[in-house]
Every structure is written in structure tokens, then in C-alpha cells.
Design a protein around this nucleic acid. Sequence first.
DNA 1: TCGTTAAGCAACCTCCAGGTTGCAGATTAC
DNA 2: GTAATCTGCAACCTGGAGGTTGCTTAACGA
Lengths: 115, 115
Amino acid sequence: MSRRTRSRIALKRRARAPLFAALGDDTRLSLVAKLCRGKPRSISQLTRGSKLTRQAITKHLRVLESAGVVRSVRSGRESLFEFHPEPIGELKKYLDLVSEQWDQALSRLKSFVER
Amino acid sequence: MSRRTRSRIALKRRARAPLFAALGDDTRLSLVAKLCRGKPRSISQLTRGSKLTRQAITKHLRVLESAGVVRSVRSGRESLFEFHPEPIGELKKYLDLVSEQWDQALSRLKSFVER
DNA sequence: TCGTTAAGCAACCTCCAGGTTGCAGATTAC
DNA sequence: GTAATCTGCAACCTGGAGGTTGCTTAACGA
């Protein structure tokens, strides 16, 4: 791999950490699970059934929004949150890259042993 | 989706959060990047070129190890860390599940509109 | 054998993520 | 018009994540 390619990957990596971090919380994963399987929901709706306060849920939603996993639109007095799939796709690509590098490393090691 | 299926997914979700969290840090992503593309490395090796202390790096490695992304083997006076690909694969599966649910939700919505 | 190098352990510090309460401003329903 | 509902903002609290320093033990090399 060229140095240029590697630094490009490093650049991508930098951007990925906050995304992973945003998903690294039970409450937020639960919110994503709710939103990815249906229509936009309001904060109050998303708070119902949770043990947390509305404000806590709001904070989590803002984190997800900053990471781009979710988008909010104000509609009257309520703000609706909707799932946004792109970051998830990017994350999958990144994980594919990691797996791919690992496979290449394995085959390099194998050919080295067989030599 | 049946209630049983959904709870199974929720169970899987619980287990995923710590894994996402383990990857939600620049330093740790960088360590994963190094380890996934080569042979096992010692703590000192991994510390070289970093601005952090050996102990800091050690802590990060332990976090990755708890998440299963990495495994350590003691060899003489040094402990070698090696990439372990399974959790990454599980993560990809989980993200696929999320994407899939989103696609289904979209098509449900579409058929509802067209009705 | 002795110096050097690798690692583990423990104490400590700082800061912020995650959560709460309280209040004020819009918007909707009646 | 008034009450109920949805949200935003700000202050505050607390635990743990991330980092450091200092010391000790174990293994290797000359």
C-alpha cells in the first residue's frame, strides 16, 4: 500500500471515531433501532416507554444528529426525528476496509510461511 | 416482525454498544488499524510514534481486548497484541440488519402512499 | 552478574458524558 | 381565552474515561 493511500485511510479513520462513539451507548442504539424501522417520531414519543427524562433523550438525539445518523425537522410544536442511513453505510465500508486489510495480512503471512 | 424476533434483536443490540464504544476513540481506531494490517505487536512497539504514555496505550489495548477486537499473548517479557476479526464481522451483520429494516420501512411507506 | 528493556500495579488528577430539575416560550386543543 | 402539551435553555451533580507519574517485578543481552 502506498503512503498516500494509507494517509487517506487515516483521514477517514479520524472521521469515523465520533460515529462509532455515537453508537456506543445502549440508549442511543435503542433510539436508532426505533427510528430505522419506521416513520419520524417526536421527542415525547421517543421518551414514552423509557426510564429516562425527556431531556436525557433529547441529549442523546442531539448526539445522534451531530453524527448524522438522525435528522430533525421542526413541525409545529414538536420536532420530529428521522433515521438517516448514509453514515451507517460509510461505517460498513470502513469495517469492510478493516476486514480486507486483515485478509491481506493473513495471505501475506501465509505466503511468507510457505516460502 | 414477531415480538420474539424483536426482543432477540434488542438482545443483540445490548451486546453491540460496548463494541461500538470501544471503536469510538481515535487512539483505539488507530491501534486497530495498525494491528489489522500486520503481525502481532508488543505494547512498546505500539507506543512508539504515539504521543501518549505506554500506560495510556495499555489501557486502550485492554479496552479493545475486553471488546474482543484484539487478543493478547504473553511472550517472554513482552505481551503481544493481535487483531481478532470476529467482532468486526458481527458489527457488520448488525449494521446490515439496521439498513435492512430501514429499507423495509421505506418500502412499507411507499406502498402505503401508492395505495 | 549487572544493566537495560518490557510490562504490571496503584494512586492520583481532570474533564466531560450522562443524567436531573426548574423554568420559560410556542403551539395546539377545547 | 385558557389550559394542556411539546420543546428549548441553563444550572447543576456525579461517576468514570482518559491520562499521568512512580515504583516494582520479570526477562533478556553482554
